[in-house]
């Protein structure tokens, strides 16, 4: 009994020092695997994820002012389902005029690109092909986009993007 206690104490001591030194190799393996499997299952490479992140920023910037650096876009697994998790730290909600202006600027830009594309069709088709490919690959995944607040920052001004008009 005494020996067993001693053993447990000494072992506990070694365990503790190990834990303090960082995550166990098993945790590293699990985390690395989760990431790599997510990529395997969806065909979303890190480059594509980064592109998606940037496009997300462009899209949402029209409606809210946010911390662009801290915007996180991750694939997460919940049981059988793969979810696309988007975390957006909102700095400030934009007022009506700003949103209007942003949308108008966009509409204008669209018209311009449409004109351009008529003159310059080869470029445009190449671009859209690429986008089609990446969306086809995701047919089997049910993707839910969730917006959430980043609790550590901007607690006062945080607004869920959902609530924005």
């Amino acid at each position: 009994m005494i020996l067993a206690n001693l053993y447990n104490k000494v072992l506990g001591f070694f365990r503790q020092t190990e834990k303090e030194a960082g995550e166990s190799s098993k945790d590293t393996a699990c985390n690395r695997l989760r990431v790599v499997l997510m990529q395997d299952r969806t065909n979303l490479t890190p480059e594509l994820m980064e592109r998606m992140r940037r496009e997300m920023i462009d899209l949402l910037s029209k409606y809210v002012e946010m911390d662009k650096e801290a915007l996180e876009l991750n694939l997460e697994q919940d049981g059988d389902q793969v979810a696309l998790m988007l975390s957006i730290p909102v700095i400030r909600a934009k007022d009506e005029d700003e949103i209007k202006a942003a949308l108008e600027a966009e509409d204008k830009a669209k018209e311009e690109t449409e004109e351009c594309s008529q003159e310059n069709e080869t470029d445009e088709t190449g671009d859209s092909d690429e986008e089609e490919n990446s969306s086809e690959d995701d047919i089997n995944e049910s993707e839910t986009v969730e917006t959430s607040e980043d609790e550590n920052e901007q607690t006062e001004d945080d607004t869920k993007t959902k609530k924005e008009p």
């Binding site: 098993k26 699990c30 695997l33 059988d80």
Partner: peptide
């Protein structure tokens, strides 16, 4: 190895592969 956290446990693998 599982006990010393140096190998993924049965639960880990089952969860990852569901």
């Amino acid at each position: 190895l599982i006990k010393s956290n140096d190998m993924m446990s049965v639960d880990d693998v089952v969860e990852i592969l569901s």
